[in-house]
Write a protein that binds this DNA or RNA. Structure first.
Length: 103
DNA sequence: AACCTGACTTCGG
DNA sequence: TCCGAAGCCAGGT
């Protein structure tokens, strides 16, 4: 359980799919809380076992700094079947999580 | 209470 | 498509 709606949403992102910061915020009830998701990931990650690597920016790219998580996140996603194209960008039309599309 | 910060997003040029 | 500016939320100082 978690009293945090954002944490709940993050835990629902299925394997092999990704969600954007803004998308997670929206699903949690915050229309403009992208930065709140950032805060949640950096803090709540220590208290919950969150699939933090499934969160990417709206361009389908990784926001972590190279040399400090960037490579790890890319490796985690690649291991789940998420493909990276030119510019290390993910095709969101193919890998973005669509809540309710299937089980 | 004001100000700063962070793995962001949107808009205009 | 890329860049800069403004807007957002909560916690920490």
């Amino acid at each position: 359980m978690s009293s945090n709606p954002i944490v709940e949403v993050i835990l629902r992102i299925p394997r092999g799919k990704v969600a954007t910061y803004g998308q997670v915020a929206r699903l949690a009830g915050y229309a403009n809380g992208a930065r709140l998701v950032v805060w949640t990931l950096s803090t709540q990650r220590k208290r919950h076992d969150l699939p933090w690597y499934r969160i990417v920016n709206v361009r389908g790219g990784i926001s972590l700094p190279r040399g400090d998580g960037y490579e790890l996140q890319k490796a985690m996603l690649t291991a789940e079947g998420v493909a990276f194209g030119a510019g290390d960008r993910i095709d969101l039309s193919r890998f973005q999580w669509q809540p309710g599309e299937e089980a």
